[in-house]
Simulated scan of single mutants.
Amino acid sequence: MSKFAGTATYYSRYRPGVPSEVAECLISEANRYAPATTLLDLGTGTGQVIEALHQNFRDIIAVEPDVEMINLAKKNIRVIISSETAISFYNCQAEEFLPPINWTASLVTICRAFHWMDQEKTLRHLSKYVSPTGAVAIFGDHSFWRANSPWKKAVRKVIQDFLGEQRRAGECVFSHHNRPYSEIIKESPFSDVTKFNIPVHRTWNTESILGYLYSTSFASRPLLGERLEEFESTVRRTLAEFSQDDTFEEENEFMIRIGRKK
């Protein structure tokens, strides 16, 4: 079973998209040395990166291994994309993707997905398909699992009570790298690394928090199974202790790491 089985609809509706400030940073970096025309988005999910950037590219490729995710991405993106922009979808792992002959990317984007990939192999593989002036952008914000406020900590405790102390990744336990992405990129063909951190403020309510949780690999509805209703009522009771008007403030940030060939 996919780590994200049953999450695609919630991912599309409740996962925060790419903020305009992040999109502007990515476009600026993509055009730093030459006009950017081609975009390769790895780990497309339901298409949020392409939704934010599509107007700036004439040729886009989306790569996503989860069938439910990529099918929803096709629906989401084809509604908004211009007929003048070519777009292709590949249902495969990032490390296995093969572009059309002579196709190269001006910008490669990997948002909230690099931790699922064979990182060194992916970067080596990309070196063959990125233009000499192109860039690889690896970026994302902090998940709810990284609790940095009282209400988030309380929600994480509920998840742990239902699914165990260790963070889940579908039917498995989540295993995260312990090295900064910038170090990993510096050891790759894209060793010229630039860093950006862009703060993000969000306001949530109980429904959007539950929707977000159901979009994750660590608290999806299939994982909760027969305890789903019990879990949901427990989250609602827990959140009610932290707000009288059902609003929950979050301070987050997007960490962007841009790699280029030297």
Rank of each mutant, 00 (worst) to 15 (best):
K3T: 02
R237Q: 13
S88Q: 15
E29Q: 11
P65L: 07
A62V: 04
T37G: 14
Q166K: 06
E183N: 07
V49C: 15
L163P: 02
G211I: 12
A137H: 06
N205F: 05
F196I: 04
E183S: 08
F248D: 10
Q48S: 15
K153Y: 14
R124Y: 08
C25M: 07
T238N: 01
N71V: 01
T133R: 14
G170T: 05
E183T: 05
H142T: 15
M69A: 08
A105T: 03
I77S: 09
E230M: 14
E253G: 01
A62Y: 02
Y33N: 13
W103I: 00
R146W: 12
N31H: 05
L98N: 02
P132C: 10
P150G: 05
I101D: 02
T109C: 05
Q119H: 09
Q55H: 14
F139D: 03
I209F: 04
P222C: 12
L224W: 15
F144V: 04
Y129Q: 00
Y212E: 10
P222S: 12
E250S: 12
V200P: 01
Y214N: 11
P189D: 07
E29I: 03
I185V: 15
G170E: 08
A30T: 05
D118F: 08
S28W: 11
L239S: 11
R260G: 09
V130H: 03
D245Y: 11
E68Q: 08
V63I: 01
H177M: 13
G47N: 13
F231P: 01
K152F: 09
W116T: 13
A73V: 14
A135M: 06
G259F: 09
D141V: 00
K262F: 12
A86M: 14
R124K: 12
R257M: 08
P189V: 04
Q93R: 09
D41A: 02
S83V: 08
A94N: 00
A52T: 05
E68W: 03
E51F: 13
F254V: 03
F4Q: 11
M255E: 02
V63Y: 00
I198H: 04
R58A: 13
I110Q: 00
Y11V: 13
L40V: 04
Y181D: 03
H201W: 01
R146A: 12
V79T: 13
P189S: 07
S127D: 06
Q160I: 01
N205Y: 05
R260N: 12
I87R: 06
M255H: 02
E95W: 00
A8M: 13
V130I: 09
R257K: 13
S208H: 05
I258P: 12
E120R: 15
S233W: 00
